[in-house]
Simulated scan of single mutants.
Amino acid sequence: MVYLSRICLRKYGNFVDNLRLYVRGGSGGMGLPRLGGQGGKGGDVWVVATNNMTLQRIKDKYPQKRFVAGVGANSSIRALKGEGGKNVEVLAPVGITVTTDDGRKIGDLNAEGDRVLVASGGSGGSFYSGFEPGKSQAKHIRLDLKLIADLGLVGFPNAGKSSLLTALSNATPEIASYAFTTLKPQIGKLIYPDYKQISVADLPGLIEGAHMNKGMGHKFLKHVERTKQLLFVVDVCGFQLASKTPFRSAFEAVQLLTKELELYKEELMSKPALLVVNKMDLPDAEDKLAELKEQLQNPDKFCNLLPDDMIPKNYMTFRHVVPVSALTGFGVSDLKSYIRQSLDEDAVTENKTFHREKLQALRQQLGGVCEKQGQRIPRASVRP
């Protein structure tokens, strides 16, 4: 197991999903005591989200990983107010969380053009500071990439996630009949007849103890946070990671995956989820599927198969349980329909919530105006 982990870490290193940078704001300019002049403010350092950018490109383009803003100009007889220092922008990919070295979050970059201030420049010297410039900020920051996708495939190694992604979409991940084939996240696009596109992230397989960062648990689990819904994928016949690890049935795999997500971050349990039961082309698959469905309906009755510390506090509720064979294509079209239906349902709910909140804000705004004018507008007269 240690040998496998070392192999995975070396290969995974080619995919840069976090980067540590040194950033420093520019120094402020000196004030001019004789004429009461004010020095220019030092420049700021910003991290700005842009498409078509990767952390690997930042690493290659700026090998020293240092970003220092411009210095503010001193006050002078010709210019009593010194010119401000030049700002520096670090262009980063969309889907970045910016944190300090100690893990404190500075901000998120979720869309093109989002900006986060990471180091402020020093203030210019003035009468109030004895004409001495203020200190600029300097720190190390971390850019942490978390994928943004509609769906995240979650499963143990060799559950068939990569084969499923290929069957569903236009992605071409590496596929083989051994564990740990997927060593970095893959994104595929589901394209429907009406040109609707849904993004699906194939996340590398988890292992038991992933929440404690076993294997590369945290590198993988963090990507689950930035997906709208989860797509659990299990082998209908169960799996065994290695000869020295216990065999796990499909039901046990579902509960272990649930427990890993729960222990890593309990909020993940609130995400809508579908369950894909893969490899239905194998012998006795129908009988095993029927057994799994019965176990899912009465999980308390069958969870004695697991150690107490591996039983989730709350069982995952799946919107749909879909049997498929990524190899033969059986059930894949049904799965695409269920995925679309699930995401569309959430989109309608989000839209209604948005309009309801907007309407409430409008009513409060109009109510405040009417109170000032001593009038009262009937509730029915306010429309969305």
Rank of each mutant, 00 (worst) to 15 (best):
M1P: 11
Y3I: 06
I7R: 13
C8R: 14
N18I: 07
G26F: 00
R34V: 10
G40Q: 09
D44M: 06
D44E: 11
V47N: 05
M53W: 11
D60W: 04
D60P: 01
P63G: 01
Q64E: 14
V68H: 13
I96Q: 01
T97H: 01
V98H: 01
N110Q: 12
D114G: 11
V118S: 01
S120M: 13
S120A: 15
G130D: 02
S136A: 15
Q137Y: 10
A138Q: 14
D150W: 03
V154W: 01
P157Q: 04
G160Y: 08
L164H: 06
T166R: 12
A167M: 10
T172A: 07
T172L: 11
P173V: 06
P173N: 01
P173M: 05
Y178H: 12
T181H: 00
Q186N: 11
G188K: 08
K189M: 12
K189S: 12
L190W: 02
I191W: 07
Y192P: 02
D194R: 02
D194A: 05
K196L: 13
A201F: 02
L221I: 12
R226W: 07
K228R: 03
L230I: 12
L231F: 06
F247A: 06
L257C: 03
K271L: 06
V276G: 08
V276N: 04
N278A: 00
L282R: 15
E286G: 03
E286M: 12
L292V: 02
K293I: 08
E294T: 05
Q297L: 11
F302H: 11
L305P: 02
M310F: 08
M316F: 07
V324I: 06
G331Q: 09
D334H: 12
K336A: 08
Q341R: 15
V348F: 09
H355E: 14
E357T: 09
L359H: 13
E371T: 08
Q373F: 09
Q375T: 15
I377R: 13
A380G: 14
V382L: 02
